[in-house]
Computed example of a mutant assay.
Amino acid sequence: MRTTVPLVDLEPGFVVHVAETSATVVGSVWLRQDGFVWSEHLLQGAGLGGQWLSVEDDEGQLTVRLWTPRPDLTVQVTQPDGRWMRVDGRRWTRREKGEAEYLTEGRTPYGPSGRCEYADYRHKDDRLSFERFGTLPWDVSTGRALPAAAVRAFREGDDAPRS
């Protein structure tokens, strides 16, 4: 029998099932800014591999996004300056900018802990995110919201769908 786990409890080794696709969480990053905590989870598996799943619980309101790394954009945009920018032929408006402390577990490129700068932009329902962990170059990703109910998570070995 499959026992689902709350998305806020994701960590490396869990299996995530989105629509008909499954992936294993191989690395997790927990970020904290002024008491607010959110997480990002690196996925490995056919269909979702290399993408990140972010989970935010803002006073009971769960926001889940699937992020696709966009290394091609780091050439176009070296850093997130300004209140808006044009990327992929669309105008993106900055929604948030700040710094957070982070801790990692599993396989991530960021080291065990440190500080992360970020800037998030919005175009309609899509997101464009810039994150810089420590002194590493900016990571750029595009993201789309997923209904929390459409994402299920299982402990590996709990008869979870294979990734």
Rank of each mutant, 00 (worst) to 15 (best):
V37G: 00
W38Y: 12
W38E: 12
H41T: 07
H41C: 06
L42R: 13
L43I: 02
L43G: 11
Q44H: 03
G47F: 02
G49A: 04
G50A: 06
Q51H: 07
W52S: 07
W52M: 09
S54I: 05
V55Q: 09
D57Q: 06
D57I: 05
D58P: 00
E59P: 00
G60R: 15
Q61P: 01
Q61R: 14
R65A: 10
R65E: 12
W67V: 01
T68Q: 10
P69V: 03
D72Y: 05
T74S: 11
T74G: 04
Q76P: 03
T78L: 14
Q79C: 13
Q79M: 15
P80S: 14
D81T: 12
D81Y: 14
D81I: 08
G82T: 03
R83A: 15
W84P: 05
R86L: 05
V87E: 09
V87L: 12
D88G: 03
R90P: 00
R91I: 11
R91Q: 14
R94N: 13
E96R: 02
K97L: 15
A100C: 08
E101W: 10
L103E: 03
L103D: 06
L103F: 07
T104L: 03
R107I: 12
R107D: 11
P109Q: 08
Y110L: 02
G111D: 05
G111E: 04
P112H: 13
R115H: 03
C116S: 10
A119V: 04
A119D: 05
D120G: 02
Y121C: 10
D126G: 05
R127C: 13
S129K: 02
F133W: 11
F133S: 01
G134R: 14
G134W: 14
T135C: 02
L136S: 08
P137H: 13
P137T: 04
P137I: 05
W138I: 13
W138S: 11
W138P: 09
D139L: 15
S141V: 14
T142C: 10
G143Y: 07
A145L: 06
A145I: 04
A145P: 02
L146Y: 01
L146C: 01
P147R: 09
P147A: 07
P147F: 09
A148Y: 03
A149L: 08
A149M: 00
A150R: 00
A150D: 02
V151P: 04
R152N: 06
R152I: 05
A153D: 11
